[in-house]
Amino acid sequence: MKVSPKHFVLKTPMEGPWPDNMKVCVLANGCFWGSEKGFWRLPGGGIYATAVGYAAGQTANPTYEECCSGRTGHTEAVQVVYDPEKISLVDILRWFWESHDPTQGNAQGNDHGTQYRSALIYFDSEQEQLMRASKAAYEKSLREARRGKTASITTEIVAAADFDQPFYYAEDYHQQYLAKPGARPYCSAQPLQVALPAFEDWAPSPELLKLHAPKLSEDFWKQHAPKPHCVIRSPHEPISWP
């Protein structure tokens, strides 16, 4: 799939090879238009590049129409390339959990189908541990907040190594869609406005607590945590934050 050489907002390369200090993660939380915008807006210069695409499926090089058929096994996902010295995977995961409803199975809001399921794809053991621990922590918070309502998280957590290629780029018109002139202001993600607990409460180990300490403060989340439709209405450039 051909995509533009440069990110429409960040002006960084859309495809690798990436600088040696960068890490990659793939996250799927429903409609990928709004999901991508939420990730590229994270502050501090830690997000090097984002791209939308199709992940965790079996068919090579799927098109949007093929993905929507439900027969390729893919979900709409965002590839995030980040600098761990400037932003932690824990910050990215907090945005992921808080920016959608991870209990909806094959759906997000008005969008239904396997391509809208919630998923995390890990590339190494540390990512897997953080993803699984954050899932357990967020599920506990949802149960406490929703008081008996459905709070079981359906997000699948899978290894990139389980697939011939874990992420395929989507068509260029989908890339950074919400920032482009004439874009339809739409995102089906359903933020529940329930916070992921502090990392100290769910870090898998003292070593990972030290290595992946969040870079974004609680003050940031009090002001900028995902809210319904906030991505659609927000500016396109990254959030300015001390």
Score class of each variant (00 low, 15 high):
Pro197Glu: 11
Asn21Ala: 11
Pro228Ala: 07
Ala77His: 02
Thr154Phe: 02
Thr12Lys: 09
Met131His: 04
Lys6Gln: 11
Glu139Thr: 04
Val9Met: 04
Met14Val: 03
Ser99Arg: 08
Pro204Phe: 09
Leu178Ile: 06
Ser118Cys: 13
His100Tyr: 13
Ser205Pro: 04
Gly16Leu: 08
Ala151Met: 11
Pro226Asn: 09
Ser188Arg: 06
Glu36Val: 01
Cys187Leu: 10
Pro102Lys: 10
Leu211Thr: 12
Gln129Ile: 03
Ser125Gln: 14
Tyr138Gln: 03
Glu128Cys: 05
Ala55Gln: 09
Lys140His: 11
Phe163Glu: 07
Pro242Glu: 14
His7Gln: 09
Leu211Asn: 13
Trp33Arg: 08
Leu130Ala: 06
Glu171His: 03
Cys68Val: 04
Arg117Cys: 07
Asn110Ser: 15
Leu27Phe: 14
Tyr177Val: 01
Tyr54Ile: 01
Thr59Arg: 14
Gln104Ile: 07
Gln176Ala: 05
Leu42Ile: 14
Tyr48Glu: 09
Leu89Phe: 07
Val9Leu: 07
Ala107Arg: 13
Phe123Val: 08
Phe96Cys: 01
Glu85Asp: 07
Ser69Asn: 10
Lys180Gly: 11
Gly53Gln: 10
Phe32Tyr: 09
Asp83Asn: 07
Arg117Asp: 05
Phe163Cys: 11
Ala189Gly: 14
Ser134Ile: 00
Ala55Asp: 07
Ala51Gly: 09
Pro197Asn: 13
Arg71Gln: 15
Asp83Phe: 01
Val90Phe: 02
Pro5Ala: 13
Gly45His: 06
Tyr177Cys: 06
Cys25His: 11
Met22Gln: 11
Ala195Lys: 15
Asn110Cys: 15
Thr75His: 01
Lys135Glu: 04
Phe199Lys: 12
His100Ala: 00
Leu93Pro: 00
Asp162Arg: 07
Asp164His: 09
Trp95Thr: 05
Val90Ala: 06
Ser118Ile: 05
Gln115Glu: 12
Arg184Thr: 13
Ile153Cys: 10
Ala119Cys: 12
Gln79Lys: 14
Lys23Gln: 10
Ala107Gly: 07
Asp124Met: 04
Lys11His: 12
Ala161Lys: 13
Pro235Ser: 12
